[in-house]
Design a protein around this nucleic acid. Structure first.
Lengths: 249, 249
DNA sequence: GCGAAGCTTCCGGTGAGTGGAAGAGTGGAC
DNA sequence: GTCCACTCTTCCACTCACCGGAAGCTTCGC
């Protein structure tokens, strides 16, 4: 379970990349030994490569001797054209939603069998929110995930329904129940969750369409679903606005 | 002027990194030939290394055959601890400012002799805004830049004042004039620009303090400075709020 | 159809990368 | 103070994976 291992004899580049790949959401700070292990490299090799990466700015070393992703990679990553148009166009609508709901607002797309969060407007509320920009979460336990799953190809649905890991006591782990919920998402054009991803957090989400095709999802995180109708309405108006901009952009 | 050139005999890793370093704000899309030239590598070498980088996801290839920064580097870059605490704490205040002014709001720090933009809330206005998250701009031609410069060490001021590149017809290029403005920034505790960075855009900015020390700057971009007093007031309230959170965080 | 520009593949020589082994720091237990 | 365990750093000779010139391959424009 130690991340990417790179077989001996692999190219130098792939070893350096294996080191970078050792970092993820759950492992933002790693010691040299951890890095070497997760990359599947001997310690001296890791030591030398990490030295080069630090010199370039791809990694940097904290005071405590741990390694973290460096600022130069932050710069570089921001140049990546990851749905740039969508994020740009959606931005004002996220603000509007935040203004109307004061809840944390999310813009997400599907990436294989996961949700990929593209943007986030964090509210002041104390509702626990586990998703941050760039993070990936399972499709079956979040509002935006259910929306994206409901509109995903059959093979993706099959693959996701085949394994529904439990995240809280309320996570839906029965394929039949989730399948009925997805049908309802298509019917009502919005999805909800109740503490299925993390305790204390509910969510409401709607699809964003470019023409007939669902290209993304818009969601908010709230402490309870009692205001569901009003919030779903607000989300749908914003989603349509974004969809319209997409069509004409 | 072709970016990083890597001498022959340099390590493999440094060659791969030289390829990544070929990308910047002004060069987000490069052909193989451009990449090879900017990295100072022979074409076949660049070709092979780029192939490995693409396979890993560090780069990707567009339909037109250009290379761009890949999604995996976007993911990775977001893990970098670049002023995470500051950005997190400032976020709600940026929203508040946006709500109060409807202008584009910026959070920035000084990075050597440049401004580094950490966060941005883009307004609906048609005012041209050249700064985006992760970008760097000269300290002498932006509002946040003047604030940060006014509070920078003497050696940084000297180095910046020694060369004031002209960006528009209104850019301040006389050291004496800029020096007087910086004194005024200290006195009035806010800075302004009038079309000094890009035509049609003015800005107002204030320092963010952690205790006595200026650690960042907060600014907005507006079409004119006529509402200067009110806007500076709003900025100062927000900056104090952020500073207070920093102190207690 | 031709030429030019950009991309891709090939392959033998060679020197840069590899990683075992040994040494140096660090901190905790007694 | 002494020991031990752990993590990090340096060294160096062998070898094999990288290098890049040359040649072939597309894809344009004319």
């Amino acid at each position: 379970m130690a991340g990417n291992t790179s077989a001996p004899g692999a190219s130098v580049t792939s070893r350096a990349l294996a080191l970078l790949g050792a970092f993820d959401e759950r492992h933002r700070r790693l010691t040299l030994t951890q890095l070497a292990e997760r990359a599947g490299l001997p310690l001296p090799t890791a030591h030398r490569l990490v030295g080069e990466l630090v010199a370039w700015g791809a990694l940097s070393r904290t005071d405590e001797g741990c390694y973290v992703v460096g600022r130069r990679l932050w710069d570089l990553g921001l140049l990546a054209p990851v749905q740039t148009g969508l994020r740009e166009l959606a931005s004002p609508y996220l603000h509007d939603l935040y203004g109307a709901t004061l809840a944390t607002v999310h813009l997400a797309v599907r990436d294989g069998t996961e949700v990929l969060y593209l943007d986030r407007l964090a509210g002041h509320t104390s509702v626990p929110v586990v998703s941050s920009v760039g993070s990936r979460l399972p499709l079956h336990a979040t509002g935006v995930g259910k929306v994206l799953l409901a509109h995903a190809p059959a093979e993706v649905q099959r693959s996701v329904l085949a394994e529904l890991p439990r995240l809280t006591a309320y996570t839906i782990t029965q394929p039949g129940l989730l399948r009925r919920q997805l049908a309802r998402v298509l019917r009502e054009d919005h999805a909800t969750t109740s503490e299925e991803m993390s305790l204390g957090a509910c969510s409401i989400a709607v699809p964003i369409r470019r023409g007939p095709e669902v290209v993304a999802a818009l969601g908010i995180v709230v402490p309870s679903l009692k205001d569901r109708a009003r919030l779903a309405g607000a989300l749908q108006v914003a989603a349509r606005g974004i969809g319209r901009s997409l069509g004409t952009g």
